[in-house]
Design a protein around this nucleic acid. Structure first.
Lengths: 238, 238
DNA sequence: CACAAGTATTATAAATCTGTTACGTTATGC
DNA sequence: GCATAACGTAACAGATTTATAATACTTGTG
């Protein structure tokens, strides 16, 4: 069990650090921060982190330098954070020694998922755990979500969803019966820089319901409006 | 069963070792490393590896010397890693005693395939195992890939594919219904030094579809675009 | 060295998705 | 029932993503 894995978050922007910290802590990670490359390197050499989230672009010592220096001593898994146009190419390559990278602006949810995925990967190679639990398949009475195939089927029939529709559905379905308000949905499913209208959520819900409804009334009913609050994914237990 | 076969990876470049290690471990191989010929020889004499991946060009003691010295004691299968212009000729020849060789820069996928192939070959000659499980034949409703013959047929008609087209198709077809993003495809199918444009994948997909479509509309439809994500090889289950 | 085949890049066109707005509908409290 | 607030719906413009085609580059071969 990777209970309380320790994560170091390195970024010169405080709001980014705080954002990531918030989401990681909610998943019971222990989070520490550094706002520059030098401190990051010191910290990571003197502590055993389970993952390091490392911003690529930082003044003085950038993420690549930190990673390369770190790699001379230890093999702590590193996820690089890169802005859009940044030389993602070099980071992708293996010369630097990063294990994954995330493009800004990301959705907080994505960061959590990637960190977890990396921990899983690492722990697998280290102890050969029997951790086959990570099914990429969500099955409900009238609806199935196959993550690998990126496929949603309602009553056996496939439904073609747009990326946002798919993400929204997955998010709701990953916590059945839990209500989310629009604000939270925007925060979780959209990127952190998105400050759009709350009604945007409604539109996507509408489209999602429509597509589901075309195939299965039952499936469409699973996305429930909670008046004055938000939406939830409800599983009938009839 | 070659469960947890033990592989020794010898290369003076760390990133190469790490790259190979990563891909082999993902296939459940046990991987050990050496960064020079001397250590490699010691290790391989004192351990029973199932395969040794041996870089040809190394300071002091090169791959050929290691291999020759090793051969005086034991018959551990050896795959030589050679850079492009290097005297692949000598390695190819039988005077050295290598079992296979791979030219750098390779694609990670290739290494895994070659290692597996070699293990298969060796285990066959050693114990005449009933291991006919490893079919080199992929058969789908409208498409067949015969690895041995390096031949693709759609609806019975043969299709002539370029190397990249073939590899791309094989890779997708080896994991039906699983979506791969362009990045991953570049990493897996292309060589490890390639950091090209993601659109390159599109172009190859286009040409592949075109060739398939010339012969079988059905076959061409198997390569599916997943909007905002990537491509997958889909098998209709109608 | 020229040629051909294969490959990567780029530019452009086409398809698709997305957020917003405006307006219609439904629920809620009085 | 009425006013109000919250939600549903439809349509549009702009943005994003993919397909296609054309071009340039690379590589192997004779």
């Amino acid at each position: 069990m990777e209970a309380n894995a320790k994560v170091l978050v390195v970024d010169d922007e405080e709001r980014i650090r705080r954002l990531i910290r918030m989401y990681l802590e909610r998943e019971d990670f222990l989070v520490e921060e550094a706002d520059n490359g030098k401190d990051a390197l010191d910290l990571s050499l003197n502590n055993d982190y389970d993952v390091i989230l490392l911003d690529l672009m930082m003044p003085e010592m950038d993420g690549i330098e930190v990673c390369e220096a770190l790699r001379k001593e230890k093999n702590t898994p590193v996820i690089m954070l890169t802005a859009k146009g940044e030389e993602a190419n070099r980071v992708q390559g293996f010369e630097v020694g990063t294990d994954d990278y995330i493009v800004k602006p990301f959705s907080p949810r994505e960061v959590v998922l990637r960190v977890k995925a990396l921990l899983r990967r690492v722990s697998q190679t280290n102890f050969k755990s029997d951790d086959t639990t990570t099914k990429e398949l969500l099955v409900f009475p009238h609806l199935t979500i196959d993550h690998d195939a990126h496929r949603v089927t309602a009553d056996g029939k496939e439904i073609s969803l747009t990326p946002k529709e798919y993400e929204l559905l997955c998010f709701l379905a990953s916590a059945p019966d839990k209500v989310f308000n629009r604000e939270l949905l925007l925060k979780e499913v959209w990127q952190y820089e998105f400050f759009g209208d709350l009604r945007t959520v409604d539109t996507h819900v509408k489209r999602l319901r429509e597509k589901l409804n075309n195939v299965s009334k039952e499936a469409s009913k699973m996305i429930v409006t909670v008046w004055g609050v938000g939406y939830k994914f409800e599983v009938d237990d009839v």
